[in-house]
Design a protein around this nucleic acid. Sequence first.
DNA 1: CTTGACCTTCCATGAACTGGAAACCTCATC
DNA 2: GATGAGGTTTCCAGTTCATGGAAGGTCAAG
Lengths: 138, 138
Amino acid sequence: MNIGEAAKLSGVPAKTIRYYDEIDLIKPSGRTAGGYRDYDERAVESLRFVRHARGLGFSVEDCRALLSLYRDRNRASADVKSLTAKHLARIESKIAELESMKRTLQDLTARCQGDDRPDCPILDNLAGPERSRAEARG
Amino acid sequence: MNIGEAAKLSGVPAKTIRYYDEIDLIKPSGRTAGGYRDYDERAVESLRFVRHARGLGFSVEDCRALLSLYRDRNRASADVKSLTAKHLARIESKIAELESMKRTLQDLTARCQGDDRPDCPILDNLAGPERSRAEARG
DNA sequence: CTTGACCTTCCATGAACTGGAAACCTCATC
DNA sequence: GATGAGGTTTCCAGTTCATGGAAGGTCAAG
């Protein structure tokens, strides 16, 4: 099938499918006489697989590894689990980082009047975070 | 002072300071006869300000706006607060997205044996998420 | 044979830097 | 004045994962 249909069936945009071909993540099963990429059901399956993995935040390189495990009948599920655990750890640390930002931002917005006057704890904090809290309290 | 000292005092790498100059975020106060960038205390203050804002996840464009508000004695704190609120909302939605990934990944790793056998709920899920849960239950 | 949809390749862009190469400046020492 | 170390300059490339667009080739229908 043409790239357009593979896109429709897999949910991956044609442009992205070309990109995956370029980086040797998912190659078309062949080319037609006219130079069109040709995809079979197995390729579409891979495209779907990668779409799901990307949706769970796996990097393209992770997807490459996962795809190869997926295609390997002799794989050990431990390898998949370990890859996933590492990814999960990255996600958790990202969440922690964002939560920390969130707390600070919530605290600052709560203390900012948000009126037409210039006084602003948010700017004070950005100008010197080590000082503004103490000042606010003292 | 030279870029190296500005870097030391502000905590922003010299390379990044050059980049901020290039994108007109923070310009050096001048240039020496030899062509070296020259930074004064006010510039260092801006660098610190931007470092803090970046640390809270604000985009460089947000930093540009915040810096201009910081320098504006007639600013309305409402403008700062509104910018911050938008940023906070983006962070919260990012957290929600990551939390959703996290839940799925945790569920999958919990169900994966992680041994030397090929059976793997994680790969099953990636191959077809709409099916694997039902299969697991049914 | 022409239209229109679809496909091709190639190049540019985004976000925010970071690394490295080749050359230049500065200051101290001999 | 030469030399050497260390800081600085500019410019180019690379990172991640696509996405948008231009110029042109292919294909099926009428």
